[in-house]
Each structure stands twice: as structure tokens, then as C-alpha cells.
Simulated scan of single mutants.
Amino acid sequence: MGLRFSDVCIDAHDTHALASWWSRVLGWPAEDTDDGDVALRAPAAAGPDWLFLAVPEEKVVKNRIHFDFTPEDQDAEVARVLELGARRVDIGQGDESWVVLADPEGNEFCILAAP
């Protein structure tokens, strides 16, 4: 018996708005689930699906886990994601090669330097 990593579950105050935002960032389709959640379906070999779960409270502390994305062009991707509504976040990272951003509900993620 083994385990398969199938979903990343993300608590969201507004599941449809946050899933729609990430759908635009990632280019993955969003769909409502039978349970009332919203899923982003990952393309083949792109990793697990993302499942947005409704919670009543807003995010109030720094994430204990976050996403890292490796772009072909870091500056272009940072600009694109900022234009979509992300914001820069200072979590004490200092002057590093990655850029820390937050989605519309405040979940931190990093855009790494291009390889």
C-alpha cells in the first residue's frame, strides 16, 4: 500500500475569488467540486491539483508552508503576477535571489531566480 500526493489544500475566505486568481497565475482550469470546494486541475506532470476549502476566518500569521515557482524570466513573472494583484512581502528574507509575494488573501509564495 502506498500514498499518492493528489491535492494541495488551501484554506480560503473566498474560495472562488482565490481559486480564480491562482487559475490566472498558473493557467490551470478551475472547477467547482461536489463538496462545494473549488479545484484547480494540474496539467499532466505539473504536480498535484490545488483544492480551495472555505474557512470563515482570514489569514493572520505567516505561512508554515509555501510555494516556490521557478520561471524562465524572474523579472517578467514578478511583474505579471504583481499586475494580477499579488503584493510584495517582507518576511525578513533580506537581499536574496528570490522574490517573496503574497496572493490576494495574504498567502506567501516565492518566485525564484531563473535557472
Rank of each mutant, 00 (worst) to 15 (best):
D7Q: 08
C9W: 05
A113H: 07
L26I: 07
D75R: 15
R41M: 06
G47S: 00
L84Y: 08
E57Q: 14
F67I: 11
W98K: 11
E77A: 15
P29L: 13
A44C: 01
G36D: 06
D73S: 10
P56W: 07
V60N: 06
S6P: 00
R4M: 05
V81Q: 07
V60I: 09
A30H: 06
L112W: 09
R41A: 08
R24Y: 06
G92V: 13
R88Q: 12
G85I: 04
A17F: 01
E31T: 14
D14V: 03
P71V: 08
A12L: 09
D73M: 06
I91S: 14
E77M: 15
E105N: 13
Q93L: 12
V78Q: 04
R87I: 11
F69D: 02
G94N: 11
P115N: 02
H13V: 06
L101N: 06
E58C: 05
A86P: 03
A113I: 09
R80V: 02
D14A: 02
D11G: 15
S23T: 08
A12E: 05
V61A: 10
L53Y: 10
I65Q: 14
V60E: 05
L40W: 00
K62G: 02
L82M: 15
W21T: 03
S6L: 06
F5S: 03
P115S: 05
E58S: 09
Q74V: 05
K59D: 03
D75T: 10
P48R: 00
W22R: 03
I10S: 07
F52P: 01
G27M: 07
A76Q: 15
L53H: 08
P71K: 05
A45H: 03
D75N: 14
M1H: 14
D7R: 07
V55F: 09
C110H: 13
